Every structure is written in structure tokens, then in C-alpha cells.
Amino acid sequence: MAQFHMNVKAEPDPRFVFQFDGAPECSPQVFQLRGNIRQPVFTCKFNFRAADRNQRSRSLPSEHISAARSWLSSFGSERERPGKERKGWSITIHDLSGSPVAVASMVTPFVAGPGSDRVTRSNSGCWLILRPGDGTWKPWGRLEAWRERGSADGLGYRFELVHNSAASGGIVLAESTLSCSKGGKFVIDLNGNGATGMKPGSAATSPVCSPRSSGDFGYALWPYSLYKGFVMSAKVEGEGHSGKIAPLMVEVGVQHVNCMEDAAAFVALSAALDLSMDACRLFSHKLRKELCPPQDLLF
């Protein structure tokens, strides 16, 4: 079983550093970086929820599937607009034993606004981030994304922690815009100081204990008081990149990781934000084949 390793080094703001070994839609491995060491800790599985409805993962019990679908329907909004929608994307994070430890699922489709070829803020798409707790799946966070109009042409986003009730209001942890052409850094820093520069290969320190699973530590579903200072950051590529795409890099404050599921939730959130850059691409532009449902590739 993968563990987060300890690096005994005094730092004022210790962080775990994770690197995707490919684009999220390519179902990559995720590595933890410790200096020059890259250790695999997670695997990702991207799929289309509608197409995968009858193909249950061997590692996802049927009762978990039912619970997850219940949350997805209660938080989501089905909108049909043939030819101008992107829907059903889902990415599951597994630990190295194959057990699912977090899910990011598109619960509200990304559709073009009336008379437009872009996803507008009034018509934003939405992801729900789920994690296991008390023997079932429970909602942890909700990410909305849209494409801003005007000269900025940015990816607007809003992330909030949610309770296990769609009627309960969430607490917003991040709301900003990233450049669609250049990309940028998604940051949750409750001190308002911003994150330090992303440093591929920078050393990541670990908690005193190397966590294994949430069963060892318990999971507070509504842990607002636990989120202080720097929480996380993720570097997202824009549409205007040339040549090889830089791997998705994620930093998570050590104080916010007590178990594998904690880290996996932030990894799933980062993947959802990265995929939102594609989901908000102008509908006049084609998506990469990995992001197109199998039936669409026949035409």
C-alpha cells in the first residue's frame, strides 16, 4: 500500500507535491515528488458516466455506486442542448491497491449559452467532488466553471465545500479567473498571501505519521475549522500552449492531509479544474479524441 513519506526538515509551510504523469483524460498515474524521487501514489480513471453506467468497476461496490448516483442527481442539473454540450465526464482516483478514494464527476453539463458558442457564467457547468466516508460516498466540494466574455477571455471558477445536503449552503474557498490562452495557478490560500511559485522537484515534507486510510483517522464531513493558511495550488495549462504539455502539478499543505483520502480529494479537484479548461473551450473548436464519447468518434 502506498504511503506518504516523512522528510524531517523544518519548513514554515510544508507541502506535499504531486505530479500527474499525463493529462487527466488519459487516465494517468499520480506521483508524489520528494526531491529527485518520484513515487507513485494514485492512479486515475477517466470515463464517460453515461457510457460507463453498465460497467461497474471491480473496486467500486454496488452500494457505493448507488450512493454516488444519488448525490450526483441531487447536486446536478440535467440540461439538454444537442450539439452544444459536454457532459458525463468523470474521473476516479484510486490508491495503488485499486480502491477508489475520490471521485470528480460532472453533474451539470457544460453547454453553450443562448446564441453563443461559449459556456457563460449564467449557464455554468458544475463538478461534484466525492470521497468515501462512513462506508459510503459523500460530497466534499463543488466546482463551477464558465468562460468569461470580453478581452480577458478567461476561465472563471468558483469552488466551495459542501455539506451532505443539496439544500445546505456551501462555504466558498476560491473564486477567480485563469487565462484561457496561458493557463495559470488555481490557489486556495485562506491567509490571502498566495502560493509560492510551483517548483517541480521541490522537496515535500510529510506529517509525523504516514497516513494509510481514513479509517485510521476518521473523517469530519464539515471540517471548515481545519482549513487555515495555505491549502492547495494547481498549475493548469491554457489552450495556447505549444509543443509538449506540462504535467499537472499539485501542492497541498501538509496540515490538511491526515489520510490518503484527504490528498485524493485535492487531486480530484485539480483534475476537474484542468478538465474544465477543455469543457469551456469554444464549441466552434474541436476537443481532443480522448474527451469525445466513443459514439462521437464514429462520425
Rank of each mutant, 00 (worst) to 15 (best):
G83N: 09
N36Y: 02
R147P: 07
G218N: 06
A264M: 03
V162G: 04
M249K: 00
M1P: 12
P114V: 13
E80W: 10
L178W: 07
R288W: 08
E290T: 11
H163L: 08
Q29D: 00
C209K: 08
R281N: 10
W127Q: 07
Q295M: 11
I245V: 13
H94L: 06
D153P: 01
C126V: 12
P293S: 05
S151D: 11
V30Q: 01
H241C: 08
A10W: 15
V250H: 04
E290G: 00
E239S: 15
T205K: 09
T196F: 03
K228T: 11
P132V: 07
F75W: 10
E290V: 02
K235D: 15
R34I: 14
S105K: 02
E11K: 13
E80F: 12
E290R: 05
D117V: 11
L178P: 09
K289T: 15
F4W: 10
F48A: 02
G83P: 10
W137T: 07
E175S: 14
H64G: 06
G98L: 05
F4P: 05
R86W: 04
F42W: 04
A204H: 02
R142H: 01
A264P: 07
P200M: 05
F299M: 08
K87F: 12
S62G: 01
F42Q: 02
M198F: 07
F283E: 12
R158D: 08
V30Y: 01
S62E: 14
A112H: 11
L155Y: 03
G238Y: 05
V107L: 07
I171Y: 11
R149V: 11
I93E: 06
F4Y: 13
V187N: 05
D52N: 15
L273Y: 06
